[in-house]
């Protein structure tokens, strides 16, 4: 085991700022990317569904009643 205590772990031998600064920014960026990609896929589907719904409305209106 490398660490005697939790504070020892966070201290990271005096390099805590550099080590955790690296890991934290990477984690935030990856999490943001996953969120952004999931959102992009969802919005793309919603947009197509909306277009299809509008078109079908138009078609129904054009049909003679």
């Amino acid at each position: 085991m490398n660490w005697e205590s939790a504070s020892d772990f966070w201290h990271m031998g005096g390099y805590g700022f550099y080590v955790w600064g690296s890991y934290a920014v990477t984690a935030v960026l990856l999490a943001f990317e996953v969120w952004a990609v999931a959102r992009r896929g969802r919005l793309a589907r919603v947009r197509v569904a909306r277009d299809v719904a509008v078109e079908r409305m138009d078609e129904r209106r054009r049909e003679p009643t």
Partner: peptide
């Protein structure tokens, strides 16, 4: 990386980056 790999002889724990 954090619990099994030892501290580096010259760089200390900064090498864990």
């Amino acid at each position: 990386g954090f619990f099994i790999a030892p501290t580096d002889a010259t760089q200390g724990d900064s090498y864990r980056i």
